[in-house]
């Protein structure tokens, strides 16, 4: 998966959040969306290029072309349209970058202005509250998507509590997002379906209500499972997130914590849960430095 980091700023943290939330909507899984995206973290005025409050977003897609299309569409429709916003690149620009501002500039109908400062080019597009500033190029990296843990609980309340704690732990790690609603998936899927048109279907082995009618992986007493799916800018961040999630979710009434490996055939990275717990002990599972 290819990843990009987008910094959105606005006149206030609230407006930056509104733009960020809108731009990352309907971006849970590349199975059904053009990209996987979510808010990485809020940015203080000292951390943004234009000194205003901001939000950092991460976008993941199957390839650079798909990522560019998704980011251009989402910034064009959800950030440029939002009052007072501006949009900047959050990764190092190299050969493998995507063009965003350079595509959106045509909205300016010939009145757009380019400003080049060093190696960075900014496009200023006139809009009805002034102008929308968007950086021309956004850097990309090869990210790691599909990190996951399955939290198996004895009741829905405690399982949701554990999953929420796990998501909070994941979100404390820079460079990692959990793109599903609240970071949590209740409709985990398996590869394939009895219906030919579908590439995936409900994860029958972890559906408590299918005990007895389908093969199950659930231990006795388990009645609820939540999956947390997360994407990171590199493997180390995803491994740290895995370790942090497992520790945060390890509360009473949790029967098991496991992960979906889909027969080891879905992607090149295999993260072994005991291994990451050993390699990232609690005191080292703190946030790794931002990129």
């Amino acid at each position: 998966m290819i990843a990009a980091r987008v910094l959105v700023t606005a006149v206030s943290a609230e407006w930056a959040r509104i733009a960020a939330t809108t731009a990352t909507g309907y971006a849970t899984s590349v199975i059904g969306c053009d990209a996987e995206a979510a808010i990485e973290r809020d940015l203080s005025v000292a951390e943004t290029p234009d000194g205003r409050p901001g939000v950092s977003l991460l976008f993941f897609a199957f390839g650079r072309d798909a990522l560019e299309k998704a980011v251009v569409n989402r910034i064009g429709q959800c950030v440029m349209t939002c009052p007072t916003t501006a949009c900047y690149n959050g990764l190092t620009v190299g050969e493998k970058s995507i063009q965003v501002g350079g595509k959106l500039r045509f909205f300016g109908d010939g009145f757009q202005i380019s400003k080049k400062l060093g190696d960075r080019r900014f496009w200023r597009i006139p809009v009805m509250d002034g102008e929308f500033t968007c950086e021309d190029l956004f850097g990309t990296v090869k990210g790691v998507a599909g990190g996951n843990v399955l939290i198996v609980g004895r009741n829905s309340r405690s399982t949701l509590e554990a999953a929420t704690a796990a998501v909070a732990a994941i979100r404390s790690i820079p460079g990692v997002i959990a793109p599903f609603p609240g970071g949590i998936v209740r409709s985990g899927s398996k590869v394939g379906s009895k219906y030919k048109a579908l590439r995936g279907s409900t994860n029958t082995a972890y559906c408590p209500t299918l005990r007895g009618t389908a093969a199950t992986e659930l231990p006795n007493g388990a009645s609820c499972v939540y999956e947390i799916v997360f994407d990171g800018l590199d493997l180390e961040r995803v491994e740290r997130a895995t370790a942090a999630a497992i520790r945060a979710a390890s509360i009473a009434e949790i029967a098991a914590i496991t992960a979906g490996n889909y027969g080891g055939k879905l992607g090149p990275f295999h993260i072994k849960l005991h291994d990451v717990l050993n390699r990232y002990p609690r005191e080292e599972a703190e946030p790794c430095p931002g990129s």
Binding site: P49, R52, A86, L117, G118, F122, R124, G130, E131, T133
Partner: peptide
């Protein structure tokens, strides 16, 4: 103009 802050910072 938001770009101004970027220039001034530079």
């Amino acid at each position: 103009p938001h770009f101004l802050a970027i220039y001034l910072r530079r």
